[in-house]
Amino acid sequence: MAVLQIGIIGLGKFGYYLGKNLVGMGHQVLGLDADPEKVRNAQNVLTQVYQLEASDKKALEQIRVADMAHVVVSVGHSMEASILISLYLKELGASKIWVKAVSTDHEKILRRIGVDEVFIPERYAAKQLAHRLANPGLIEFLPMDQQVAIKELIVEAWAGKTLRQLALTNTYGVQVIAYRLQGEKHYSYIPKADEPLRQGDFLVVVGNEKKLSDLKP
């Protein structure tokens, strides 16, 4: 996996944990915030941290944040600051700009500016939780056109059959992407087509959410 250089502007809870996870994945993260306490909290977590006012275009230019592969803007509930910073990043030539929005109107303005990705974490989290509550066993709902989701199934009726015999892709339009044998803690990611399934084994399947809910494993 290639190591990415990522800038995060705004080290509140979201920006801090985003950066921490990215560093844990082996990437280099430059964090920026005007709050000295947030900068101190992130100093031993992120690759490099600066205390500065990100709505100052010259300050952004001096630390060359626009040279990063991605820049994420997460400046709390300040629409004005978020929009201004995004505009400056565009003018400085940042290649990929992802921005946290706080409302639909905020999202519309950011898209007009031409940022590459706009996200509202609360909206995404609420949608994920709604689908997981309504569909037990659902691991993740994927934001695709055809309501694609990932679900974990426990083998019961399919016990003794092989994946080749079940032909899940041809019959139901779903695909097994991982499995875990009963009693084991870790998943394997290359399912064996001719090995009989056992009652209590776990299958991780991706496909249309409605089709996944109709499966009787």
Rank of each mutant, 00 (worst) to 15 (best):
D35S: 13
H27I: 03
F14I: 12
N41C: 06
E37T: 15
G26W: 02
Y16F: 15
Y16Q: 13
F14W: 15
G12S: 07
F14Q: 07
A42H: 01
G31K: 00
G19V: 14
R40Y: 03
G12L: 07
H27E: 02
L18H: 13
E37N: 04
Y16W: 10
V29W: 10
P36D: 01
A42I: 07
G24V: 08
Y17I: 13
K38P: 12
Y17R: 09
L22I: 06
M25Y: 10
G19T: 14
P36L: 00
Q28W: 00
V23D: 01
Y17H: 14
E37M: 09
R40F: 01
P36N: 05
G31H: 01
K13Q: 15
N21A: 12
K20R: 14
A34Q: 15
Q28Y: 01
Q43W: 01
H27R: 02
V23W: 02
F14V: 15
L22S: 08
V29S: 12
V23E: 08
K13A: 07
Y16H: 14
L30S: 13
P36A: 05
N41H: 11
F14A: 10
A42R: 04
Q28A: 03
L30D: 10
H27T: 10
G12Y: 09
F14R: 05
L30F: 01
G19D: 08
L30P: 05
G26M: 04
Y16K: 12
D35K: 09
D35C: 13
G12W: 02
G15A: 03
N41E: 14
G19A: 08
Q43V: 04
V23S: 06
G15T: 10
L18M: 12
G24K: 12
Y16C: 07
N41Q: 10
G31N: 03
F14M: 02
Q43E: 10
K20C: 10
L30V: 10
P36W: 00
K13C: 09
H27M: 04
E37S: 03
Q43H: 09
L30T: 15
H27F: 00
Y16N: 11
A34I: 15
D33G: 08
L30C: 05
G12T: 11
V39M: 02
D33Q: 12
G19L: 07
V29I: 08
L32Q: 08
N21W: 05
V29C: 09
R40I: 15
G26I: 09
K38T: 15
R40P: 12
Q28K: 09
Q43L: 00
G26K: 03
E37P: 02
A42P: 00
A34H: 14
K13S: 06
L18P: 08
V23K: 09
L32N: 06
G19M: 10
Y16R: 14
A34T: 15
V39K: 06
G15I: 08
V29L: 03
D35T: 15
G19W: 14
Y17D: 15
G26R: 04
F14K: 04
P36F: 00
R40G: 10
